[in-house]
Simulated assay, not measured.
Amino acid sequence: MTAAGRTTPPTARRADVRSRLRSTGPVVIRPADGDDLEGVVAVGRAAWRETHATLYSPELIELFLDKWWTAGANAPAIRSGRTIVADRDGEIVGMASYGVTDGRFVVWKVYVHPDAQCSGIGGRLLEAVEERAAGHDAVYLTFTDGNTRAESFARTRGFVHDGREQQNGLPDVLWMRRGLGEAAPEVSATDVSATDVPATDVPSATEDGDDRP
C-alpha cells in the first residue's frame, strides 16, 4: 500500500524487485529452506524462459514452466536438502539443485536471475554443489543441445562432453562431466559472465532425485 492507502501498481512492484536483484550487496550461498520456495521458483521461471526462447516454441516453454517451475515441482528438492540458493539481502537471486541418479552425482539446475547475472553467482553455486559430492569420482550436468551459454558455463568450469540423449523430435540432451580429482580452472574477470548462466535445462525426469527442469 502507498502512504495514501492505495495499492502499489504492479509495474512499480516489479521495478522494486528488479532494483533489489541488481543490488551490489553481498551474496550468501546457503542451503535453501521452505521460506525460499517462492524465490527459487521466480528465479527459475525468469532464467529458464530467457535461456530457452530460441530453443523451444512459446507453447512448449509455457508447458515446461508449468511442469518444472512450480512450487510443487521444487518443494521436494528443498525439503530433502538438495537445493542451494544465492541470497542477496533476503532476495533469492540464484539457485542450484542436485541429486544422485544411477550412481552419478548430477547437477540438475544452476540458474541466476537475468537481473543478477554477470557477477559470478552461477560459478559460486556450482562450487557449493560440488562440495556436497563427497564419495563420488565425478560431477555431471546436462543441458539442451543449442544452449551455447550452458556449454560455455560448463567448459569454463572444466567439464567435457560425456554423451547425448535423443528427445523424440526435440533438441537432444547433452551430458558433460568433470572428474572431482581434476582441479577446476580459474575463472578470469573476462570470463565471469560465463559463470552466471543456466547450466542444466533438460525438460524431462524419470527417477527419484532427478530434478531436471
Score class of each variant (00 low, 15 high):
Arg104Met: 09
Met95Ser: 13
Gly99Lys: 01
Ala75Trp: 04
Gln117Gly: 05
Pro114Thr: 01
Thr101Gln: 14
Pro76Cys: 08
Gly122Leu: 01
Glu91Trp: 13
Ala77Gly: 15
Val139Trp: 07
Glu130Tyr: 04
Ser80Val: 12
Leu125Cys: 03
His113Gly: 03
Thr142Asp: 08
Val100Asp: 05
Leu126Val: 13
Ala133Pro: 06
Lys109Tyr: 04
Cys118Leu: 05
Trp68Gln: 06
Glu131Asp: 15
Ala86Met: 12
Asp89Leu: 13
Ala77Gln: 13
Ser97Met: 07
Phe64Leu: 09
Pro114Asp: 04
Arg82Trp: 02
Ala77Phe: 01
Ser80His: 12
Ile78Gln: 02
Ser119Gln: 15
Ala133Asp: 04
Gly99Val: 01
Ala138Asn: 12
Phe105Lys: 00
Gly90Phe: 07
Ala133Lys: 07
Gly90Asp: 11
Met95Leu: 11
Pro114Ala: 03
Asp102Ile: 08
Thr144Ala: 11
Pro76Glu: 04
Gly94Thr: 10
Ile84Arg: 02
Asp66Met: 09
Ala133Thr: 10
Asp137Ile: 10
Arg149Tyr: 12
Thr70Gly: 11
Gly72Gln: 14
Arg132Thr: 08
Thr148Gly: 08
Val129His: 04
Phe143Cys: 12
Ile84Asn: 04
Thr83Cys: 13
Asp89Phe: 10
Arg124Gly: 07
Gly94Glu: 02
Ile84Cys: 10
Phe64Asn: 10
Asp115Gly: 06
Ile78His: 02
Gly103Pro: 07
Arg124Cys: 04
Thr142Glu: 14
Ala116Asp: 06
Ile121Tyr: 01
Gln117Leu: 02
Ala128Trp: 06
Ala77Pro: 02
Gly72Met: 00
Arg104Trp: 10
Gly72Lys: 10
Asp87Gly: 09
Cys118Asn: 15
Thr70Ser: 11
Arg82Glu: 15
Phe143His: 14
Trp68Ala: 12
Val93Gln: 04
Gly99Arg: 00
Asp66His: 12
Met95Ala: 14
Ala133Gly: 10
Ser119Cys: 13
Ala73Cys: 08
Val106Asn: 14
Gly135Arg: 05
Leu126Gly: 02
Val107Asn: 03
Thr148Gln: 13
Ala133Cys: 09
Gln117Pro: 03
Asp102Gln: 12
Ser97Glu: 10
Cys118Asp: 13
Gly135Pro: 08
Gly146Arg: 09
Ala73Glu: 12
Gly90Val: 12
Arg82Gly: 07
